[in-house]
C-alpha cells in the first residue's frame, strides 16, 4: 500500500508537475504568437498599447469582445474602442482566431504577469548606423532584386500598390506600406518584419523568417522611402498658394502679351470699316 501510494504520488507529482509546468507555457506561447508582436506587458508601447494591468483598466466582457474582433466593436461604435483605434494610428488589430477559453487564459496570463513598474523607454534603434549600401540593399530586397536568404517572398509581391489598403474578415492586408514608418515607428515595423502577425504575411513567411541583417536593411529602406511616397498625406495648401498662383498667371499673361506685342491681331482695314459703319449709322 505504502509502496503503491508512493508510486501514485510520484506519478501524480510528475503529472502535476507536468500539468503545472505545461499550462502556463501553452498560454505564454499563444501570447507570444498572437499578441507580443504588437503588445508588451509592462515594457512599453509597441504598435498597440502596453497591456500592463489591462484587466484592471477595462471590464472583462469588453476585453473579450475586443480581442475577438476589434473591428466589429469599432464598427458598432464603442467609444473606448474607437478612441483606441484613433490613438494608435488606425492600425487594425487582426482577429486572433482563437477560442474564448484561450482568450480568457491569455487575459489571466496578462493579469499574472502585470507588474507595477512600466518601463517607458523606447526600444533601442538599430538603424542609426545605416550606410547608403544598406539603403540600396534594402531596396533590392524590397523589390526582389536580391532574394531573401530564407526563401521568403519579396515585399513587393504584395506591397505593390501605393494607394490602397484593404482588409476582409479573415485576412487583413495593407498593400500600401508607404506610411508604415510614420504610423508604427521603427519598433513596430521591426516587430512585424521579425515575426509577421498578419494572417497572409504570417503564412507567407512560415519558416522563412528574415535574417537580422535583412530586417535592418529593409528598415533603412522603409524609413527613407516614407517621405518620398507618392501617397503622402495631404498637409493642406501652403500659405500664399492662391496668391502665388494668381501672380504667376498674371506674369505669364504679361510675358505672352509682351512676346506677341507686335503681332498683327486684326485686319488692317479694321479702323476704316469701323469708321464707315459709324458714319453710315
Amino acid at each position: 500500500m505504502g509502496k503503491s501510494f508512493f508510486i501514485l504520488a510520484f506519478f501524480s507529482l510528475i503529472l502535476a508537475g507536468q500539468v503545472s509546468a505545461q499550462a502556463p507555457s501553452e498560454t505564454e506561447a499563444l501570447f507570444k504568437l498572437k499578441c507580443s508582436i504588437c503588445h508588451t506587458i509592462g515594457k512599453g508601447k509597441l504598435i498597440g498599447p502596453d497591456l500592463n494591468n489591462v484587466h484592471q483598466r477595462r471590464p472583462e466582457d469588453w476585453l473579450l469582445n475586443f480581442v475577438r474582433s476589434s473591428q466589429k466593436m469599432i464598427q458598432s461604435g464603442d467609444a473606448t474602442a474607437v478612441a483606441l483605434f484613433e490613438e494608435h494610428n488606425k492600425v487594425v488589430m487582426p482577429d486572433p482566431l482563437i477560442s474564448d477559453a484561450e482568450i480568457t487564459s491569455i487575459l489571466s496570463y496578462i493579469g499574472e504577469n502585470s507588474g507595477a513598474a512600466v518601463s517607458a523607454g523606447p526600444v533601442a534603434s538599430i538603424i542609426g548606423d545605416a550606410t547608403p549600401e544598406d539603403l540600396e540593399n534594402g531596396q533590392n530586397l524590397f523589390e526582389g532584386r536580391v532574394r531573401l536568404t530564407n526563401g521568403g517572398p519579396a515585399c513587393i509581391s504584395c506591397h505593390n500598390d501605393l494607394s490602397t489598403a484593404f482588409f476582409s474578415e479573415n485576412s487583413y492586408s495593407v498593400k500600401d506600406i508607404s506610411q508604415s514608418f510614420t504610423n508604427l515607428g521603427e519598433a513596430g515595423v521591426r516587430a512585424i518584419l521579425e515575426n509577421p502577425p498578419f494572417p497572409v504575411m504570417k503564412q507567407a513567411f512560415e519558416g522563412k523568417l528574415l535574417e537580422q541583417q535583412e530586417v535592418h536593411d529593409l528598415l533603412v529602406f522603409l524609413k527613407n522611402s516614407t517621405p518620398k511616397s507618392t501617397a503622402q498625406a495631404q498637409t493642406g495648401l501652403p500659405s500664399g498658394f492662391l496668391l502665388y498662383g494668381v501672380m504667376g498667371a498674371g506674369a505669364l499673361v504679361l510675358l505672352i502679351s509682351g512676346f506677341w506685342y507686335s503681332r498683327k491681331n486684326r485686319s488692317v482695314n479694321h479702323g476704316i470699316y469701323k469708321r464707315q459703319i459709324k458714319s453710315f449709322n
Partner: peptide
C-alpha cells in the same frame, strides 16, 4: 502664322 493677311485686308 500670326502675320497673315486676312480676307478683310
Amino acid at each position: 502664322n500670326p502675320n497673315l493677311p486676312v480676307i478683310d485686308d
